[in-house]
Nucleic acid binder design. Structure first.
Length: 955
DNA sequence: GTTCTCACG
DNA sequence: GACGTACGTGAGAACC
C-alpha cells in the first residue's frame, strides 16, 4: 500500500497560481492496484483493495496540493475507433477477476464523492482522452502529470509532461522511457509498431522485439524510414520479415498512436481542484470502512476535538497529535524568521506553547558528533510548521580570534544561565503528555541524559529518521537534509555553511547567535514538518506496528548499550601489538629478500608490479576499472598454492604479513585509540537507519567486525573483558537465517531437521548426495554448508563452483540436486524476485519492507545483483527483525527478574552481556528464553549461550 | 575523495 | 551469445 499512499510525494507541490494538471488513468490504476495491494474487504464482504488504494491516492493529491487541476480518466467501453480498422484489437482480453468487478463502480463512486472531475468518451480509450487533455493543457503553458505506468502512455512524455507510476511512486520521464523502449518518447510508437504487443493483439513484425526495434529505429529514424530502406538490412530473415509485414507494422503504428485530437468532454476549467463536499465524502468513506482516509481528509471527530482533548496520558497525546492537523501547511509555509530565546520569560512562553500544542519538535546543538563527548550548546523547539526557536545555552564569543593574544577579548553573548534554562525545560521534556519529535533521537537523548548536559530523560519520543526507515529502508537515505529535499522540497542550511570546514571549522559554540538560530531552529522546523507528513503514512503503509513496537523501542535500548560500552584491556592490547610488530618486521625482511628488493608491502600497486611484472608469476588478474594488478587474498592464495617456488612462498608470506598488518592497524591500534579514558571502556555508535536490510551497523569503532575466525584474531577478543566480579556472556541465535529459510519456503525436510535438533548441514548433505546419515563425511558436509549459505545469497552455479573449487558442471549438478530435493526453495526464490520486480520491494516474514531499487535496472549486471539482494534480504532482514524484537524485551525482563546484567553489544545474531558472577545461571536461562520465544515460526529458534572472562572465552 | 583490501555476520 | 558471478556492513592505507 505504500505505493498508493506515497504516490503523491513524487509529484512536486504545486505553488499557488501555477497550473498543473494531474490526469489519473483510472482504468489502468484499478488493475494495477488490484494485483499489487493485499486483499481487503468491507464488513459486508465486498472486495475493496483497489478502491482503498485509489481513495488514498486521491485524498493525498487533494490534501497535499499536488495539482491545480485534477481528473480521473476512464475507458467508456470496450469498442473504440481502433476496432473499426482492426477488429482483433484488444479482442482476446480475458474477463476481469470476479473480486475486481464490483470495484469498477466503486471507483467511479469514489471519484464522485471526492468531487473530482471524471472524463470518459465512448469510442475512445482513456489513453486517447489523456493524450488530448495533456496536449491542450501543455499548450496553455501548464505542467501535466499522468498517473499511470501504462507503457502505451509513454509516447506522451516530453518537457512539461511526465508520468508517475502510482504503485512504485516513481516518476517516469524521458530516461525511464528510454530505459523501457531504447528510444526517446517521440519514437516510442515506431518501436511499438515493429515490436507489437501480444496482450493488446497489436501484430507488429514477427521476430522483432523491443530491443531489435529500438536498434532499427535508432538507425533509420522512424518506421517509414526503415521500411524504405529494408534493402540495407543485412540479416536475411529480418529483412524478409520487414518486407512481408510492412503493412502490419503500419497498422500497428496506427493502433498504438494515441489520438491527441480526441474531443474534450469537459472544459479545462471544469477540472480545477475544489474542496470536496464533506457530508457526501464522509458518507462514502464510512460506507467502505476507510477510517484512515476519513482522518486524513480532516473529516469526522478526529479533527473536531483536537484542541480540547484530554492530555493526561502519553497514549492520548499520541493519538491526538496524530489526528491533529498542523496549524500551518507543512508543505508550503515559508522557512526562516525564527526566534532566538535569551530570556527566561521568553523561554517560558515557548514552553507553554509547546505544552499546549501537545507535540513539539526538539533538536540539540552540541560541539561534537560523538554523543558521549558532546557538550550541549543550545536547544531548539518547533511548535508548528514555520514556528520555531533556538535557545542558546553555552555559546562563547564568536570564533575567528582564538589564540590571537592581541585581540580585545570579546564577551560571550547574553544567554539564559544553563541550569536555569534546563530546569525550565525539564518538565516539558519529561511530560508524558507532550510528544517530543526528533530526527535521530538516539543522539539527542544520549546528550541530554548525561549529567553535565542536564541529566534529562526525554520521553515520549517520535523519531522522523526511524519513521522514514520503517517504511523505506533501502530506497534512500534517512538523514534530515535528504528527507527534507525529498518530502518538503526544501534544502536546509548545511552545517558546513555555519561552521566552515577543514582547519577553519569552528565549534558550534562559537557560531554567532543569528547564524546559529537560522540554522538550528530550521532543523527543528523541518523535523516537525516531516513528522506531520510521514507519521500518518505509517498506518497507511502497514508499518505502524514495526515502528512503534520495534524501531522506536530500540532507541532507549541502544542508548543504554552505547553508554554502557564494553571494557577493553589496553595493556593486553599493547602486548599483542608489540608481538605483531616484531613478527611483521621478520616477515617484511623475508618478503624483501624473496622479492629481490625492498618495497612497500602495504601498497597493492607495488606488490602487483613485483609479483606479476617483475617476477612474471602466473595467476595475475587486472582490475577492469583501473587496469591495476589485483592482489587480494583470493589472488595471493592462488599464487601460494601453485607449487613451492619462490612466488608461492612470497605470496604466503605476504598473506601472513597482511593479516598481522590488518589486525595491528584496525584492531590493536584502532581499538586502543577508542578506549574512553574516563571508564576504560569502548563505546560504539549503533546506526539504526543505514542498512537496506533492517540490520544495525556499528561505527566509531565498529564492534561488529572484531576478529574471530583466525587464531591471531582470537587474541584481539581476549582483550574484551568484564569488570571484576563479572563475566561476559554471549548469546547467539544458531543458524537463524537457515531457520528462516526453512520457515519461509516451508521445506518439510529442513523443518524436521530443525525440529529434531539435527545438524542441518549434514542433513542437507545426506539429502542432496543421497547418502545414509552415517555416511556423510566432512567434505560432503562442507559442500552442503556452502550451498546452504549460497542459497540465501542467491548464488549461481558459477559462484558455487568457485567456492567449492569444482567445475561449473558439477556445481550445477549439486544445485539441481538441491532444488530437486527441496522444491519449495526454488519456488520461494522465484517468488521473491517476482515480488521485487512487481512492487520494488520484498518483505520480511514480520512485515518490514526492504526496497530493491536496482531491480528495474537496465544494466543486466546490476539487475542480477538486485535479484540476489532480493533473495537475501528477507533472510538477513528477518534475522535482524528477530534479534531487535528480543533486544526490546530483554532489558525489561532482566529488570523484572531483579538481575543486574547489562546488554552491551549486538553482532547481528549475537548479544553480549556483562553479568555479575553470582547471576550467571539465572541470566543465561532468562536471556535464552526471551530470545527463543520472541517470535513463533514453523521451526524452533535455538540460542547458544557461553560465558567467560573475555569475549574470546564467552564465544 | 576514490580504490583496494579485509574484518565480521 | 555476452555479460558477470553470493548478501550485508565499516575502517585503514594507498593513491589520485
Amino acid at each position: 500500500m505504500a505505493g498508493a499512499a506515497a504516490a503523491a510525494e513524487a509529484v512536486p507541490v504545486t505553488p499557488p497560481g501555477a497550473k498543473h494538471l494531474v490526469l489519473i488513468d483510472g482504468s489502468g490504476y484499478i488493475f494495477r492496484a488490484f494485483h499489487a495491494l493485499p486483499p481487503m474487504t468491507r464488513p459486508d464482504g465486498t472486495p475493496v483493495n483497489a478502491v482503498f488504494g485509489f481513495t488514498q491516492m486521491l485524498s493525498r493529491f487533494l490534501t497535499d496540493h499536488r495539482g491545480s487541476h485534477l481528473a480521473v480518466v476512464f475507458d467508456a467501453s470496450r469498442v473504440t475507433f481502433r476496432n473499426e480498422f482492426y477488429p482483433a484489437y484488444k479482442a482476446h482480453r480475458p474477463d476481469p477477476p470476479p473480486e475486481l468487478v464490483p470495484q469498477f463502480a466503486l471507483i467511479r463512486e469514489a471519484t464522485e464523492a471526492f468531487g473530482v472531475a471524471q472524463v470518459e468518451l465512448p469510442g475512445f480509450e482513456a489513453d486517447d482522452m489523456i493524450a488530448a487533455y495533456a496536449k491542450h493543457f501543455a499548450a496553455q503553458g501548464g505542467e501535466v502529470t499522468i498517473v499511470s505506468s501504462d507503457k502505451d502512455l509513454m509516447q506522451l512524455v516530453r518537457p512539461g509532461v511526465q508520468m508517475l507510476d502510482p504503485i512504485k511512486q516513481k516518476p517516469i520521464r524521458e530516461p525511464e522511457v528510454f530505459e523501457k523502449f531504447g528510444v526517446a518518447p517521440d519514437k516510442v510508437v515506431d518501436v511499438q509498431a515493429l515490436a507489437g504487443d501480444p496482450t493488446d493483439n497489436v501484430p507488429g513484425v514477427p521476430g522483432i522485439g523491443i530491443k531489435t526495434a529500438a536498434q532499427l529505429i535508432g538507425e533509420y529514424g522512424d518506421l517509414e524510414g526503415l521500411l524504405a530502406n529494408t534493402a540495407k538490412i543485412k540479416q536475411p530473415k529480418r529483412r524478409e520479415a520487414l518486407e512481408q509485414n510492412a503493412e502490419k507494422a503500419r497498422i500497428s503504428k496506427r493502433l498504438v498512436t494515441l489520438d491527441e485530437n480526441a474531443p474534450l468532454t469537459l472544459a479545462i476549467e471544469a477540472l480545477e481542484v475544489r474542496p470536496p463536499e464533506p457530508a457526501a465524502l464522509t458518507k462514502f468513506l464510512q460506507a467502505q470502512g476507510f477510517r484512515s482516509v476519513v482522518a486524513r481528509m480532516g473529516l469526522g471527530e478526529a479533527a473536531g476535538d483536537a484542541g480540547t482533548r484530554a492530555r493526561n496520558s502519553a497514549v492520548a497525546a499520541h493519538a491526538a497529535a496524530q489526528a491533529a492537523a498542523p496549524a500551518a501547511d507543512p508543505g508550503t509555509t515559508p522557512y526562516g524568521n525564527y526566534d532566538c530565546v535569551t530570556t527566561i520569560e521568553a523561554l517560558r512562553g515557548w514552553i507553554a506553547e509547546a505544552t499546549r500544542a501537545g507535540v513539539v519538535a526538539l533538536d540539540t546543538e552540541t560541539d561534537s558528533l560523538n554523543a558521549l563527548r558532546a557538550n550541549l550548546v543550545g536547544v531548539c523547539l518547533a511548535t508548528a510548521p514555520g514556528r520555531a526557536c533556538y535557545i542558546p545555552l553555552r555559546h562563547v564569543a564568536s570564533g575567528g580570534t582564538q589564540g590571537d593574544m592581541l585581540a580585545v577579548p570579546e564577551a560571550a553573548p547574553p544567554q539564559i544561565p544553563f541550569d536555569e534554562a534546563m530546569a525550565a525545560l525539564r518538565p516539558l521534556l519529561t511530560d508524558r503528555s507532550v510528544l517530543k519529535v526528533l530526527q535521530h533521537a538516539k543522539y539527542d537523548l544520549e546528550v541530554l541524559c548525561r549529567a553535565e548536559n542536564g541529566g534529562i530523560a526525554v520521553a515520549p519520543v517520535d523519531d522522523t529518521m526511524l519513521i522514514s526507515y520503517a517504511m523505506e529502508a533501502g530506497k534512500h537515505g534517512h538523514g534530515m537534509d535528504e528527507l527534507s529535499v525529498l518530502h518538503l522540497g526544501h534544502k536546509p542550511i548545511s552545517f558546513d555553511e555555519v561552521t566552515g570546514t577543514g582547519r577553519a571549522r569552528i565549534s558550534f559554540a562559537q557560531v554567532a547567535l543569528d547564524k546559529a538560530t537560522a540554522y538550528a531552529a530550521e532543523d527543528a522546523d523541518v523535523t516537525l514538518r516531516l513528522w506531520h507528513l510521514l507519521k500518518p503514512r505509517l498506518r497507511e503503509d502497514g508499518s505502524l506496528a514495526l515502528y512503534e513496537q520495534v524501531e522506536r523501542r530500540m532507541v532507549p535500548v541502544l542508548r543504554d548499550m552505547e553508554i554502557a560500552g564494553i571494557k577493553v584491556d589496553g595493556t593486553e592490547l599493547a602486548r599483542i601489538g608489540e608481538d605483531f610488530v616484531q613478527r611483521m618486521a621478520q616477515l617484511e625482511k623475508q618478503i624483501h629478500e624473496l622479492a629481490g628488493r625492498p618495497f612497500n608491502i602495504g601498497s597493492p600497486k607495488q606488490l602487483g608490479e613485483i609479483l606479476f611484472d617483475e617476477m612474471k608469476l602466473p595467476g595475475g588478474r587486472r582490475s577492469k576499472a583501473t587496469g591495476a594488478w589485483g592482489t587480494d587474498a583470493a589472488v595471493l592464495e592462488e599464487v601460494a598454492t601453485q607449487g613451492s617456488n619462490i612466488g608461492a612462498v612470497l605470496a604466503r608470506t605476504v598473506l601472513d604479513w597482511r593479516q598481522l598488518s590488518k589486525l595491528k592497524s584496525t584492531y590493536v591500534d584502532g581499538l586502543a585509540a577508542a578506549i574512553d579514558p574516563r571508564d576504560g571502556r569502548v563505546h560504539t555508535d549503533f546506526s539504526m537507519a543505514n542498512t537496506s536490510t533492517g540490520r544495525l551497523a556499528s561505527t566509531e569503532p565498529n564492534l561488529q567486525n572484531i576478529p574471530v575466525r583466525s587464531a591471531e584474531g582470537q587474541r584481539i577478543r581476549q582483550a574484551f573483558v568484564a569488570e571484576p566480579g563479572h563475566v561476559l556472556m554471549s548469546a547467539d541465535y544458531s543458524q537463524i537465517e537457515l531457520r528462516l529459510l526453512a520457515h519461509l519456503a516451508d521445506v518439510p525436510a529442513l523443518r524436521e531437521a530443525f525440529a529434531t535438533g539435527q545438524d542441518i548441514h549434514s542433513r542437507t548433505a545426506a539429502d542432496i548426495f543421497h547418502l545414509p546419515p552415517d555416511a556423510v563425511d566432512k567434505e560432503a558436509r562442507r559442500r552442503a554448508k556452502t550451498i546452504n549459505f549460497g542459497i540465501i545469497y542467491g548464488m549461481s552455479a558459477f559462484g558455487l563452483a568457485g567456492r567449492l573449487g569444482i567445475g561449473p558442471g558439477e556445481a550445477k549438478g549439486i544445485i539441481d540436486a538441491y532444488f530437486a530435493q527441496y522444491p519449495g526453495i526454488r519456488d520461494a526464490m522465484e517468488r521473491l524476485k517476482e515480488e521485487a520486480r512487481l512492487q520494488g520491494y520484498v518483505s520480511t516474514s514480520f512485515g518490514r519492507k526492504l526496497w530493491i531499487p536496482d531491480i528495474g535496472a537496465k544494466d543486466m549486471v546490476r539487475r542480477a545483483g538486485a535479484e540476489r539482494a532480493a533473495i537475501n534480504a528477507p533472510f538477513q532482514g528477518g534475522a535482524a527483525e528477530v534479534i531487535k524484537r528480543a533486544m526490546v524485551r530483554v532489558p525489561g525482563a532482566l529488570r523484572q527478574a531483579g538481575l543486574a546484567a547489562r546488554m552491551l553489544l549486538q553482532v547481528h545474531d549475537e548479544l553480549v552481556f556483562e553479568v555479575p558472577e553470582a547471576e550467571v545461571d539465572q541470566t543465561s536461562s532468562l536471556v535464552r528464553s526471551v530470545m527463543e520465544g520472541v517470535v513463533t515460526l514453523r521451526v524452533p529458534l535455538a540460542v547458544e549461550v557461553g560465558t567467560g572472562r573475555s569475549w574470546a572465552e564467552a564465544h
